[in-house]
Nucleic acid binder design. Structure first.
Lengths: 104, 104
DNA sequence: CTGATAATTCGACTTTTATCGAACTTCATT
DNA sequence: AATGAAGTTCGATAAAAGTCGAATTATCAG
């Protein structure tokens, strides 16, 4: 919970974003966030069969890739997609993540 | 050069595509192919500072991720982006790859 | 202050990935 | 058949990434 200042998207290469989204858990997280009407969720709110440590790691990767923002609320850590910024820097990315359904 | 039959995109998860594009060499290859007016290039035509073996490996990853097609011409191996199919299966992907410039 | 909850940090371990040199295959040309 | 060019395959090695349990920090509710 060190720092809530997100990285500038200008400095993020597309390969970093691709890498962040190449893990099924992380893609799920992004899709869950995008599907949420409120726009944000706490880390623990997304059901994943992984340990707390791993979950924390995945959120970290998404954060460092510029994909999500974090906001502390009590002991919780609410996260949201940096939608408008991402759309500017990576046109088409969110459409891709939103509309591509997971294969059987 | 075993098989030139590309995988069905229906069976390719988005994470696989993301993983394939998470490497700088491979992203370059895709961007070079998309920028090419003829639409195709031989493996060796793209300048990369890697060995033949590694280059071959990267083309293999792109092929298995459903991103490119291969066509033998003599001893050469012409490759092209599976553009229309990709656009249907992964809307926004090619726009993303085409328009996102590499950071400084 | 105490206890409970949410999340992070710290090693340690395992799996995956990128990379290469060398040997091999294929095809075209001579 | 012999040469050369373009790719592939085969280990081997080194770096990166995913995973976890245990210890730690931070915050809220009594």
């Amino acid at each position: 919970m060190k720092d809530y200042t997100p990285p500038a998207l200008r400095d993020i290469p597309l390969t970093t974003v691709m890498q962040a989204l190449s893990d099924p858990c992380r893609l799920r997280i992004m899709q869950a966030l995008l599907a949420e009407t409120s726009g944000e969720l706490a880390c623990g709110d997304i059901p994943l069969r992984i340990s707390k440590a791993t979950r924390s790691h995945h959120f970290d990767v998404l954060f460092n890739a510029g994909l999500i923002a974090k906001r502390p609320v009590g002991t919780k850590c609410m996260t949201s997609v940096r939608a408008s910024e991402l759309e500017r820097r990576f046109p088409g990315l969110l459409t891709l993540v939103r509309t591509t359904t997971r294969k059987a």
